[in-house]
Structures are given as C-alpha cells and as structure tokens.
Design a protein around this nucleic acid. Structure first.
Lengths: 194, 194
DNA sequence: GGACAAGATGAGTCTCCACTCATTATCGTC
DNA sequence: GACGATAATGAGTGGAGACTCATCTTGTCC
C-alpha cells in the first residue's frame, strides 16, 4: 500500500494504531462527550499520547475524523433506503435510524452544527443533505409527506431530535413516541390544516 | 431590609453587585455558552473575581441561579397563558415563546437536563412541568390537541426544539416553520391517523 | 541482517480557569 | 465621625488538559 507514488508505504503499525485510536475515540467520546480528554483516548487505545497527536495533530482533527466516519455511515444508510426502501416512508425510517444512532453516540451531537468545540465538516454534510433532499422528494411524490414541507425544516427537526435524544432520561420508548408526533406533523393530512 | 430576624441587613453594595453579576452572567453565558469563564463575568460586571465567588461560591452555583431565574420567568409566562390565553392554543403559544427565549439565551440550553457542566435544578423544573401539564390538559379538553399525546412527549419536544434553536443558522423564519410542523403533529387530526 | 527512515514514547511545557485568602475599602449604626 | 462587621479586591494556587520534543523502537528495503 503506497500513500503516494514517490513516498514509502505507510507502516503497518501506523495503520493499526490509527484504527485503534479512532475506535477508542468513538467509545470515549460516546460517553463523556467531546470534552473527554485526549489522554483518555490514548489510554483506551493502548497507545502513548504522543502517538495520538502524531496521527491527529489537533483534538479537533480527531473529532473531525470521527464526524466524517459517522456521516459516511449515515449517508450510506440513506443511500440504502433510497435503493431498497419503501418510497413513502423511507424518510421516516432514515430519521428514526439517525436519531437512534445518535442516542448511542454522543459525538454525533456536533453532527450538523458543532456545539462546544468547533468542528468544521462542510463537505460530508453536503452529501447527507443531498440524501435527505431525495428522501423527502420521494415521500412527497408518493403523497406520504405534506407537499409544503421544506428541506431546511426537515434538517432542523433532525438536528433537534438528535440533540434531544442525548438528554438524560430519554429511553427508547419515549424516543419512538416523540418521533411519532413529529412524523404525524410531516405526514399528509386527510383534510384538516391550519 | 433584614435577611433574618437576628442578623444585620444585607449591605446595599452587596445587593447591587449581586444583581450586576447576574446580569453580566446572563450576557456572557448567552454568547459563549456555559464554558465562558468566570473572569469574563467579573469583568463585564465591573467587579473583582473574588466578589463573584463571594456571591456564588461555585461556578455551578452561578449557573444554577441563572437557571432558576429563567425558569421562574418561563413559568410566569405559562401562568399568564393559563390565566388569560386561548385555552385551545395556549400550549402552542407557550411552546413558541419558550423556544424563542432560548434562541436568545444560550444558557437555557441546560434548562431541563444540563449538558456540559452538571447544574442540578430539580425544584424549579417541577413547577414548569406542572404548568405544561395543565396547558396540555386544557388543550386536550378543548379538543385542539390529540388525546393520546402525553406530557413526557411534550417535554421531550420542548427540550429538543430548544436545543435545536441554539444551532447556528436558525433564523426566526425557520424556527417558526419548524414549530409549525411539530404543532401539526400535536394537533387533533380531522380523520387520518397511522 | 544491517541501515535508516518512519513511528512510538512519555515526561515536560504552557495555557487557561476555577477557586482562595490576606489585605484593604465600605457600609450601617450609635 | 468612629468603630466593628461586612464586603471587595486581585495576586496567587492548584489542577486539568492540549500539545511538544528529545530519545528510543520498529518496520521496510536491499
């Protein structure tokens, strides 16, 4: 494996460590949030702290790498639903999936507009937005989602519910019921409107 | 003004400073979040740092005092609506009011289940919850809100939307439209359900 | 299996921030 | 206006955590 045509290959131990660090960071930040220390990540990865900083020169870089990885997974979920899901309800399924994933992974908090630390992630967000746009359009074409619902509203709800799902005291049941209300608001009503 | 039957009055400068500190803290934490430094609060209050700590022995105490103050305002809003508002839509009005207030005041983030720091505020939350319970019950009795909506769901939505409203890029317009969707989900449908 | 560059190590630095305390200033009272 | 209690001051302390770097180790290539 060559990193570049005129450079040497990336050493095997370096690749291994990079992977270990990412995995450890996922766990550590999952419970503890982005305020958890880099030292803790190093400890859980079984690596010295200098090694973490060799791979990710800044804590923000590490967070960004995690974000990117998660966004890719989530975007893949969306793509799968676009390919195989029921057109009418694919958006709801995706919505529920994302919130569920977030609930299990505090780091995603910063997903669409970081909070405590600044974690710029412009690129990956775009593809997620694209996927949601398509999911929304299909639901609307199928008549399942109100025609006047806009993309930014869906993204805003997604963001809000992901944030909410992180709070203490949200169990799975409450999460599903709350999502149910939001979905009812998105769904095409038979007649009443205001 | 006597603090207690057998103690001396609270000195005028002390009262003044306490008020100044609270006001400054509101501003400072409003932009900067709860991670803003106590030193900054002191500076904006025009007071030495030791004075801040005399009034609020701990940063958490200061945050808690702010929370309490805000919860009292919000609970007062709810009480006003209970007394004079339109029964059917009072909950929606209150909901919108609270989210709006939050958008202008980052500190409220930690309102119903603190994030970064731990800011226990058991008592004041109870009275807020009570007010929302009553608002919800009235809306349901009036037939404006679905009968199967539960209090914890409303609180969860409130929490989520307040969190969401803090994100960058939420302007007033988006906020109102997003709330509109949630309200549609809470409203009694004329016929369709799923 | 030797040479050497890439990588790992972890004690140490630096900065930031919550919190303390000896000293000084101010208020309320007589 | 003097006196004692209360409060304000701000340099200082302690600890946490991001980041560095001189030194040692290991993988890769011939």
């Amino acid at each position: 494996m060559r990193a570049d045509a005129q450079s040497r290959p990336v050493r095997a131990d370096a690749q291994r460590n990079r992977a270990r660090i990412l995995a450890a960071a996922e766990e550590v930040f999952a419970d503890g949030g982005p305020r958890a220390s880099t030292e803790e990540v190093a400890r859980r990865a079984g690596v010295a702290i200098g090694t973490v900083f060799r791979h990710f020169p800044t804590k923000t870089d590490l967070l960004r790498a995690l974000m990117k990885q998660l966004l890719e997974q989530v975007t893949a979920d969306a793509a799968a639903l676009l390919a195989h899901g029921d057109t009418a309800t694919a958006l709801f399924e995706f919505f529920a999936q994302l919130v569920r994933r977030t609930a299990a992974n505090r780091t995603v908090v910063s997903l669409l507009g970081a909070e405590g630390l600044d974690v710029p992630i412009a690129g990956p967000v775009t593809s997620l937005t694209d996927a949601v746009r398509e999911l929304l359009a299909r639901g609307q074409r199928a008549g399942a989602i109100r025609a006047d619902v806009r993309l930014d509203e869906v993204m805003a709800l997604l963001e809000s519910l992901c944030q909410g799902a992180l709070q203490r005291g949200w169990d799975e049941d409450l999460r599903e019921r709350t999502l149910g209300i939001v979905f009812a608001g998105l769904r095409t009503p038979v007649s009443s409107r205001s």
